[in-house]
């Protein structure tokens, strides 16, 4: 196998503490294209891996603002402009009565933004991922913690990286193919 078809190296760790320390060492050693694979979010691991915060909040704010505008436009246009009707002694467009639906539309679109934005940022759903070739990766959703270094990392070297991961306590260190 040539270097081109390698996706990266994956190592197994057996506790939240050990993956945390391993992540610190790996990034400290200069690796940048690293990721962890854990059964639950490990507190502080994003800092250890030097991964930035999520921009999802901005997506949601934009979606929420869109929801407010669309709802207001809809109610004003439908009841106050296109087919004006006077009912229950209120003006055709009466702002207090538009608040509930405006709020619901804001929440609905924000929720879509949060969920689909999260999927988009995570590039999910996907049918396959190279990491599934690792022999014990199935335990990443059970009780084991994995660290991966991708082959595209400038510091990546199949032999050196494997040895490094073993030296910091990784088990089942395997080269995973694309």
């Amino acid at each position: 196998m040539t270097n081109n078809t390698k996706w990266g190296v994956v190592a197994e760790f057996d506790s939240a503490a050990s993956i945390y320390h391993a992540a610190e060492k790996v990034t400290h050693h200069g690796y940048t294209r690293v990721d962890a694979h854990t059964p639950f979010p490990v507190h502080g691991l994003d800092r250890a891996l030097r991964q930035g915060p999520s921009p999802l909040g901005w997506i949601v704010v934009c979606c929420g603002a869109t929801g407010i505008c669309l709802a207001q436009l809809m109610m004003w246009w439908m009841n106050g402009h296109d087919y004006v009707f006077w009912v229950s002694g209120k003006t055709p467009y009466a702002w207090p009565s538009t608040i509930p639906i405006t709020f619901e539309c804001m929440v609905l679109l924000s929720g879509f933004g949060a969920v689909f934005g999260m999927f988009g940022l995570n590039r999910l759903p996907r049918l396959h991922h190279p990491i599934f070739r690792h022999s014990t990766i199935w335990r990443a959703t059970d009780d084991r913690f994995f660290l991966s270094i991708e082959a595209t990392d400038p510091k990546f070297d199949s032999r050196e990286t494997v040895r490094f991961l073993e030296s910091i306590g990784g088990k089942h260190v395997e080269i995973v193919e694309e």
Binding site: V107, M118, R126, H129
Partner: peptide
């Protein structure tokens, strides 16, 4: 959906969960 517990995914996931919680409360 091809979830494999990636920490990058968890970052967005936890944010999404927090935002959904903040939206669901009102």
């Amino acid at each position: 959906f091809g979830w494999h517990g990636s920490n990058r995914h968890w970052i967005h996931y936890e944010k999404a969960y927090l935002i959904l919680a903040a939206l669901s409360t009102p």
